[in-house]
Amino acid sequence: MIPELGIGIGWRSAIDLTIERMAGVDFVEVTAEHIDPAAVPASLRVLRERGVPAVVHAVTLSLGSAEPLDRARIAHLAAVATALDAPLVSDHVAFTHAGGLDTGHLLPVPRTRAALDVLVTNVREAQAELPVPLALENIACLLQWSDAELTEAQFLSELVGRTGCLLLIDVANLHANARNTGTDPAEFLATVPAEQVAYLHVAGGVEHDGIYHDTHAHPIAPPVLELLGRACEQLRPRGLLLEWDDRYGTDAEIAAEVAVIRRVRDLVQTT
């Protein structure tokens, strides 16, 4: 069963006190790679003692790599989830390393049946070693592999059907892909299995020369907020979470972004 999460924000050490003191934070998301499960930061201990759930988000499992999983990364994610008593964990439908090389970025998985088979195998292996449900996120990409056999939504739907994984839908990534690679957000929202959506990501970005940059360091763009409203209507997610990773504004500015997300969610719930 997917827990009700509410409105949250990505916990980052640079803004730990800001988050602790912010009203209306129902849950936080922690980046697994930044946490030592044997030395959980004091701020997270404070939040957990208040009963604020912490979900754990990984970025380096590289579940789309056509090679064996790095068991140490899975074990680390599991340990962080246990340390924080996380209700679920997540990573991306992407690969970040292969053949001994680390890309430093989330790269898209080819949307072919062969690549899906690889992904399904890796996801099942990861699920077997994780103590809580695994959600997988759509990424923003500046390129698409040729010869795609499935749309992104179809690809995710088949992944869910074969693994039982949850989905973490990043609305800003969805907008970025629509803007940069011509994908169709309406088809995406109509196709993905809403009942498997754990929560949504929302982040700021900026457009330069016709390219949308998912910076996580700017205010949420109006088209992303509009898409967030549509996603809330169609997916009825259990949680919405702001990702703000750099060039943090004032406490008031961060709180205002969280409040905007809450208003969007509330507007949808009252209609």
Partner: peptide
């Protein structure tokens, strides 16, 4: 400082 993958996360 922590690191990790950038973009699209």
């Amino acid at each position: 400082g922590g690191g990790g993958c950038g973009g699209g996360s």
